[in-house]
Design a binder for these strands. Sequence first.
DNA 1: GAATATCCTATTAAATCTATAGGATAAATA
DNA 2: TATTTATCCTATAGATTTAATAGGATATTC
Lengths: 146, 146
Amino acid sequence: MLSKKTKYGLKALAFLATKELREPVQIAEIASEENIPQKFLESILLSLRKTGFLGSKKGKGGGYYLIKDPSEIQMTSVIRVLEGPIAMVPCVSLNFYEKCDDCPDENTCAVHKLMIQVRDSALNVYRKNTLADIIIDPKIIKSKRS
Amino acid sequence: MLSKKTKYGLKALAFLATKELREPVQIAEIASEENIPQKFLESILLSLRKTGFLGSKKGKGGGYYLIKDPSEIQMTSVIRVLEGPIAMVPCVSLNFYEKCDDCPDENTCAVHKLMIQVRDSALNVYRKNTLADIIIDPKIIKSKRS
DNA sequence: GAATATCCTATTAAATCTATAGGATAAATA
DNA sequence: TATTTATCCTATAGATTTAATAGGATATTC
């Protein structure tokens, strides 16, 4: 299951991606537009700022904003920051590797063999998607229809 | 993250797949060979029996055994029984669909768009793998080398 | 009928996730 | 410079889920 943190974080990033770069948007606005508990969102945006995805500005007219173009923001890095490992078991994780204490030999482990494939398939998806790829601007849809 | 339940269940199935069909193997043997807490494994095997993957026999000489050929056991169904939905969010789940209460429109949801792809890629992997595909019999490896 | 091994329900313990509280800090503005 | 505004930050409460165990019932073998 995707955590709420990741879900909310992605929605917030997508929301900011529809705005002008470096135009601060307040937490309150994002929270109400995307139906996210405000205090929870606050902590998520904070961590996205600390990990280099967002910039922020304090005081009146302040808020959060993207510091990179959406097409430069890869889903692999967003997911790793928000959700943690992409792999479903630590023993197949590229960035968070850990040996299983119950498994004597990864090379003969059925779970390992299966989860390597699952990891690779998820990686493929995350690698080929940037923030720009997943945002769906209703305005764009409208103009395509007309 | 893959739950321990799923991990243990898969390992147990893989273990049984290396044995003769319908030859009962005791929980205690599987547990010690695969380093799984016995009582926990007991409950897992019970649910695998109730969902039609395993047969069992009580009393002396009893145990659990596969009732289908490993090549007939698809990973999609194993994962769904042990882990639950393959999708990471209910709103993209084929078998466990649920609408997000915070999301007014799935068609314009960035998370939805991304998670559809992740679900499909995972499905592809689980669909093309049967239990037979993931077991790695050390004997087979040896004979290939010699 | 004794031994063996699964069957079954309930419960505890631990970990993780979700959400909130409450004040500190910094910037704008009047 | 005081006031307002909005992020910053740490801590913690509450809820949920997961992992594991307990203990006895049932069925089978010999």
